[in-house]
Design a protein around this nucleic acid. Sequence first.
DNA 1: ACCTGAACACCGTTCAAGT
DNA 2: ACCTGAACACCGTTCAAGT
Lengths: 222, 222
Amino acid sequence: MNSHTQSAASAFLKPRKTPRQARSATTVEAIFDATIQVLLADGATRLTTTRVAERAGVSVGTLYQYFPHKQSLLFAVLKRHLEAVAQAVDSACQQHVGQSIDTISDGLAGAFLDAKTAHLDASRALYLVSSEMDTADLIDEISLRVYAAVAMTLASATDARFVDISAVAFMFSAALSGIVRVVLDREVDPAMLQTLRAELPVMCRAYLATAMRRAHSESSSK
Amino acid sequence: MNSHTQSAASAFLKPRKTPRQARSATTVEAIFDATIQVLLADGATRLTTTRVAERAGVSVGTLYQYFPHKQSLLFAVLKRHLEAVAQAVDSACQQHVGQSIDTISDGLAGAFLDAKTAHLDASRALYLVSSEMDTADLIDEISLRVYAAVAMTLASATDARFVDISAVAFMFSAALSGIVRVVLDREVDPAMLQTLRAELPVMCRAYLATAMRRAHSESSSK
DNA sequence: ACCTGAACACCGTTCAAGT
DNA sequence: ACCTGAACACCGTTCAAGT
């Protein structure tokens, strides 16, 4: 299942070594925190490895003991965030398995938005640097994971059947991440966030309802 | 209308001077082309000002005569691309004013997808560097322009009325740019593109139809 | 095992000198 | 008006030396 997600680029970006002593585990944790702090305080342009090390209270050399290059550091921080979001979607999926399609739709849309807005600053900060590294494989992996969970849950709905569930799940998860990303990328206007929170579930429900209708008309015409 | 879109950051990123002679106009054009070529051939990481100048056949100093820094160069290239997309949406909007809501929906979704996929490589290349500069204002400006055109066209539909047209137009344009962005950000799998082309109009129509129904029930309950 | 920080290569940016 | 390219400051990355 994850055989082709572990490509060359992923391996290239992996941390250099895993901490085996309490001291170094603390060091890595400090570096992680420092990265987000510098990103939030000084912006993407002023995010330098020296500055991160300084803020973490270690020397640059120490940073490079755990991360082969700046990219891999940013990669690790982004990975942490995206996996938290994927985890939130997974939980919501398991929670709504076998329920009605509207309940599932509202549950997934809400869970996704909650996960993103819970760490709103981190989300926006990471969007800013996500292009400074080769994130294609990571994005693919997380997208696939979210997609699979969504497909499984939609298929379990008691009151709906879909002809092409893979296409529907693909669009559903693309809509969640895409729309949320576009809105959060802009200045965070509370009114926009409110509109998004109100309208995203509406759009999700509307799309699924149409996909269902197509399923019915197709099965009745056969 | 564009008074608050010309913020400090925008001005900061403006080109240093406008070419007044044929020779320098050619130079700027060569720099633009070289930027996209280097981006496509060498990737975002290897995009250096020296490399761009070299490829354009000029010296670095010449490049810095027209662009105060690397950011402003990337900014100008991105602006060119986004304005072409906005232009395509504008045209589609004018073309479909006063038609049915389904025709409008299909027309806008198709025009947006066409504009993005027409320069697919440039689109993806620019997504990759869009976070290396301060694009917030540019994105806001283009988003606002697309939003305004969409709102105007939706309001002109002969067979539909919306209670909160600003919310609907906001979500509609966010869906277009967000979903397309998320799909194009991933490896361009032809099957995915095909699914997107088939399902995006479906989702747009479904959302607008639901927004209309809400309009009707609200007006009939008053 | 883990940490330090001076040293090196490379990139963005400038500016005195050219046409 | 426009162009050149050596020079400078700064950042990513390394590695010999320390605990």
